[in-house]
């Protein structure tokens, strides 16, 4: 196994980890099975890549991608809280709509960024360590995301978000509108997912209309691996643990590729991983069985 392989897995794991944190917020904290993710990750990539080829600063495009993701989350929230459409279907409806919207934004199914500057071209650490500036930049972004989220979850609003996933009736009896809280949770989660999408397209050098397919399962796999391996009791451990889970997940995917699986087999492999994890009683109890609750 080469060092390059490890660094690539690490970098991918970190970037996709931001998406996994979004999945964690909806599925675990809010107890809302949000499938918007497959669309909002591509939305982030679409906004970022389009703005880059239009000549905008690539860092600035990250902000707009994040905002766009938040808007897509609010649409799912609107469908669920105002139109009373079930959580799963609300997410699927947004995801489906986003496919057309993303195509509109991009203007074509694929935008290559090879001749344009991305954040990774602009950012250079002053001292020369080979290939390290990419990793450092990614680490900075991930750290910012982690710190923001952990601090947020300690505020009044953050407490309300955590309690809403746990016991919404109690939250209402504390004079809090659980619908607004759901909305806020969906906005935050999909902002993270879209930010992750924007970073991915800049990292890999292109945006593609179908890059989001299967994202939700990859996100769930990362969350579950993170929780099983890094424990799920204290927030400060769980949230970085999910990034860890994402890194391990990307590592195993790369490993599978090296051992001869075709790239097209990966979705099946990922689904199998999630199925195995969700059906193993021991692991189920470790993650609180929450993913299985919505089965009926």
């Amino acid at each position: 196994m080469s060092l390059g392989f490890l660094i690539t897995s690490l970098e991918q794991g970190l970037i996709y980890g931001i998406m996994a944190i979004g999945v964690y917020i909806t599925f675990r904290v809010l107890d809302f099975a949000d499938l918007t993710v497959d669309g909002s990750i591509t939305l982030g990539a679409a906004v970022s890549s389009k703005m880059i080829i239009m000549g905008y600063n690539p860092f600035l495009t990250l902000i707009f991608a994040t905002i766009a993701g938040g808007i897509s989350g609010s649409f799912t929230g609107f469908l669920n809280t105002k139109l009373k459409i079930a959580p799963l279907l609300s997410g699927i409806l947004t995801m489906t709509s986003l496919f057309s919207i993303n195509l509109r934004i991009m203007g074509r199914p694929n935008i290559p960024l090879l001749s344009d500057d991305t954040i990774f071209d602009i950012f250079n650490v002053p001292f020369s360590l080979s290939a390290s500036s990419e990793l450092i930049l990614i680490l900075i972004v991930v750290l910012l995301v982690l710190i923001t989220l952990i601090l947020f979850l300690k505020t009044k609003l953050g407490f309300a978000l955590r309690a809403t996933g746990d016991n919404p009736a109690m939250v209402r009896s504390m004079a809090i509108n659980t619908k607004s809280i759901k909305m806020i949770g969906l906005i935050i989660a999909n902002s993270f997912v879209a930010l992750s999408g924007a970073l991915i397209c800049q990292y890999q050098g292109f945006a593609d209309i179908s890059m989001g397919i299967g994202t939700i399962i990859a996100g769930l796999a990362s969350v579950i691996i993170g929780e099983v391996i890094f424990g799920s009791e204290k927030l400060y451990f769980v949230i970085p643990g999910i990034i860890g889970g994402s890194i391990l997940y990307r590592g195993s995917i790369s490993f599978a590729l090296m051992s001869g699986f075709a790239a097209s087999d990966l979705k099946l492999l990922t689904a199998l991983i999630v199925i195995v994890f969700l059906s193993t009683p021991k692991i189920k109890s470790a993650v609180g069985g929450k993913f299985n609750v919505k089965a009926n």
Partner: peptide
């Protein structure tokens, strides 16, 4: 109560009942 939150976290929600949900 919220089972996954601590005693003090639960009570803080109750204490904040009449104040705005802020950051």
């Amino acid at each position: 109560t919220s089972p996954d939150m601590t005693i003090e976290e639960n009570l803080s929600l109750a204490l904040n009942k009449n104040s705005k949900l802020t950051l």
